[in-house]
Amino acid sequence: MAYVGRVFRPGVTLTLRASATSPIDASALPLDQFVELDEAAIAKLEVRIAYQSVPLGDIFVVRGGHSASVRVDGALTHVHGLGTNLATGELAIEGSVGDRVGAGMTGGRIYVAGSVGDDAGIAMRGGVLEVDGDAGDRLGAAGPGGRRGMTGGEIVVRGSVGAEAGTRSRRGLIVIGGSTGANLARDIIAGTAVVFGRVGPEPGRGNKRGTIIATGGIDIPATYRLACTFEPPFVRLLMTYLVRQFDMTVGDDVVSGRFRRHCGDAGVPGRGEILEWVRA
């Protein structure tokens, strides 16, 4: 497999032995430490199933060791928390996976060939999370009880996402190739959310200094005021970056396009903005 600009050569492969019916919590797996561990030591690490700790080797076939490049494959939709707090290295997930992928990650890179569940990239602080499919609710949002969503890093979802993406985020970039559910970037402090599909209801509520870039249609809330229509140089830079770094397909009419700048949210009051693409 390969993801944009890179050839991925896993040094460790974890293959799920059988399709799981109970949730598997892999959030405690120290993927960063795999570089120091051999195959046997990795197999002895523990994951949790139904409140019990189980050796990783009982659940996954472990191949390889001493590598920061990890591939996970199998029917993974019941596997949650993969890549939690990842700081370095690369994790490639072959297929769809459960909730909380990349939660709290501070660095490194996670690539998911399928879709992800809820809470992917919550409270993320750095690194890159790239998803080929869809994502559930609260992508890049604040964790349970958390005051802040993602504070750094980049999330790229090529499909659509659920509700509350980017809630309370401060810094960081969320890119969504498809559409979004309700409440995109609610209470966003800063940071940027780019949506190429249709933006769901109530975007940018409580926006303080964040940016929503919408190219596929958005209903501007009444608490935003139109400033002007212009060609934002940053959008041009951003779109070029997405094309070159993530191989995203962005039309020249968007890269060099004109955008309406709506300032808000007046209810906070905030200095945020919604940049709405104007079809030529």
Binding site: G152, L173, Q245
Partner: peptide
């Protein structure tokens, strides 16, 4: 009124 953005 300036805005900071981080990319890559």
């Amino acid at each position: 009124f300036q805005i900071s953005k981080i990319l890559g």
